Amino acid sequence: MFAVLKTGGKQYKVQAGDILRVEKLDCVAGDKIQFNEILMVGGETLTVGVPLVAGAAVQAEVIEQIKGPKVIHYVKRRRKHSSQRTKGHRQHLTLLRVTDVMASGGDKSDVKAATGTADARRAAHNNAAAPAAAAPAKAKAAAKPVAAKAAVKPKAAKAAATEE
């Protein structure tokens, strides 16, 4: 049985036992995670989702967090300005071993859903926004001294004008 799953903006065709390198996920080595965005499940019968297959899931075990190969970005401007720049980049990846492909019942399992680091940051930001509701009161308190400083400036300007 195989499945086509979507994660990190990419699609992967997987079956039990496969090892995948996907965009970094918010998990640690040894965690069991589950992908719920399944686009197609194949085997004895082929099921294509519209856009997702309901109840289908792929479970995997995290092997480790790794970095991909170094990609060199070289920029050279010809003739004028004669500048050049070399930059390197190594993408953060998660290495996974697919343990199970489920055509149904994935929504009832107790395995943690796979989330990317961007999703984790967004969730943390939304949780931190609740205490920020008190921030407008602080902003109003800070606005009053600024207005007082603005009132001081014209007096200083008049004093400077009389000294001349």
Rank of each mutant, 00 (worst) to 15 (best):
M1P: 13
F2N: 09
F2G: 03
L5I: 15
L5K: 02
T7R: 00
G9C: 00
G9Y: 01
K10Y: 09
K10R: 11
Y12F: 13
Y12L: 05
A16G: 03
A16M: 06
A16I: 06
D18G: 03
D18V: 06
L20F: 03
L20N: 00
E23S: 07
D26L: 01
C27E: 04
V28I: 06
A29H: 00
A29I: 00
G30L: 00
D31N: 05
I33A: 02
Q34N: 05
Q34D: 07
Q34W: 08
Q34I: 09
F35Y: 09
I38F: 06
M40K: 07
V41W: 04
V41N: 01
G42T: 08
E44M: 04
L46M: 10
L46D: 05
T47M: 12
P51A: 00
P51K: 01
G55V: 01
G55H: 04
A56P: 03
A57E: 05
A57M: 08
V58R: 02
A60T: 00
I66G: 03
I66Y: 01
K67Q: 15
G68E: 02
I72W: 09
I72C: 05
V75M: 07
R77G: 06
R77C: 03
R78Y: 15
R78E: 15
K80R: 08
H81T: 12
S82A: 11
S83I: 13
R85T: 08
H89D: 12
H89N: 12
H89W: 13
R90K: 11
L93V: 06
T94A: 01
T94Q: 02
L96E: 03
R97F: 06
T99G: 09
D100G: 12
D100F: 10
M102K: 14
M102E: 10
A103I: 11
S104T: 15
S104A: 15
D107P: 04
D107S: 14
D107H: 13
K108C: 10
S109L: 14
S109M: 13
S109Y: 10
D110L: 09
D110Y: 02
V111W: 04
K112N: 07
A114R: 08
T115V: 15
G116Y: 05
G116N: 10
T117V: 15
D119L: 12
R122P: 08
H125E: 14
H125C: 10
H125Q: 14
N126A: 14
N126E: 15
N126Q: 14
N127M: 13
N127R: 15
A128D: 10
A130Y: 14
A132H: 11
A132G: 09
A133P: 07
A134Q: 11
A134N: 10
A134F: 13
A135P: 02
A135F: 14
P136W: 02
A137N: 08
A139W: 12
K140Q: 12
K140H: 10
A141Y: 07
A141H: 04
A142R: 10
A143V: 04
A143E: 08
K144G: 03
P145N: 03
V146D: 11
A148N: 13
A148C: 08
K149R: 10
V152G: 11
P154N: 02
K155W: 08
K155V: 09
A156R: 13
K158S: 07
K158P: 01
A159L: 15
E164F: 12
E164L: 14
